[in-house]
Amino acid sequence: MTTRPARPDAFPVDWPKRFAWIALAVYVFYALSTLDVSLDRILRGFSQAATLFGRMFPPNIAPDKVELITTGMLESLQIAVLSTFFGILLSLPLGFAAARNLSPVWLAGAARGVIAICRSFHPVIVSILFVKAVGFGALAGILALIVATMGFVSKLFAEVVEELNARQVEAVRATGASFFNVLIIAVMPQVMARFVGLTVYQFDSNLRNSTMVGIVGGGGIGAPLFTAYQRFDFDVVLTILLVIIALIMMFEMVSARIRRVFQ
């Protein structure tokens, strides 16, 4: 890259590449200038950060706060469980429909359109729309994360189905097995491990997002978090953040084990 030795024959200067790097540098300076980012602002930020952290510590563990946080966290967990469960349930048919080796062209195209729409919008935006449609509360959050789940899982599940080894399926069909037996013996073993991996990953992702939908009224820990933030109760904010990080770290440790069970 930039550390070219002085032997032009061995490593000639790649001008287009060098030009791309210069262009990138110019862009960064231009963008920074338009965003009103100044050293002064950053320095002021640091002193602000010091006061912020001062107000965060020690984390607030007063009983009433703990109860509030527990309730919110449990609701976030429920949102994650339900949105993953129903989202996966809906993703299966959608994924099959989008797999180009199994479904007719028009169906695959339509399914891919649905998936693209599900994927394009950030869960928070989808939550806003669902809050308007079904009112404040956990349901809006669940529906929003179901949409996010469908966007991610059906796309990858369609790819898994497209990679199915048709020969293995044909061999089992040749034994006279019924449709369901072919599905159970020839198709499921091929997709199961990937599918469990996807589910675990998506639950993880839904858990992270379920802590956030509350900011726009979608239920879960996000609402108390946002309230505490607006009231400048930064010690409560820190407690909530620590709980979130702990929960997600815990699940990250569990998820590797779950995957291994279904190898």
Binding site: L52, R208, M212, Y229, L241, I244, I245
Partner: peptide, 11 residues
């Protein structure tokens, strides 16, 4: 990765 971008933004 645990803390959502929206929550990082709040901070």
């Amino acid at each position: 990765r645990s803390v959502n971008s929206l929550i990082w933004a709040l901070i």
